[in-house]
Amino acid sequence: MAEKKIKIIVAKPGLDGHDRGAKLLSRIFAEAGMEVVYTGLRQTPEMIVEAALQEDADVVGLSSLSGVHNYFFPKVVELLKAKKLGNVLVVGGGIIPLEDIPTLKKLGIAEIFGPGTSTDTIVGFIKANVKSK
């Protein structure tokens, strides 16, 4: 059997155009040996989940800096579950107040990486927590 690769969708939900982090991490993930599908801007939760489905992704990484995380992140998790993709690891980052994190985690987002997180930490978390399929 050939070596398995981690496939990750990097997505920007909503109208927020700040994609420095998303693009930077796409490159870092690829350098860490992952196969990265970057969806671009203005993604609805439905579009993100459809991408995860067709690409058979292991991980979905969401980035939001416009304060819409409490709406979009749980919505993505909910739709993934509805499509029998509950195994997909969902992580998020951006401008997210620390006090929102417990609720987001309760709703199924595995981890939230705030500003200043080292990229090694993010890559390490994904590699340690991705589920096999």
Binding site: G14, L15, D16, R42, T44, S66, G67, V68, Y71, F72
Partner: peptide, 22 residues
């Protein structure tokens, strides 16, 4: 807010969650 900047009204589907945010 972003919907105005992107040329959508506040009740457009793409404005969901964004109204008055930034």
């Amino acid at each position: 807010h972003l919907p105005t900047q992107a040329g959508y009204d506040s009740d457009h589907p793409l404005s969901m969650g964004e109204v008055g945010k930034v």
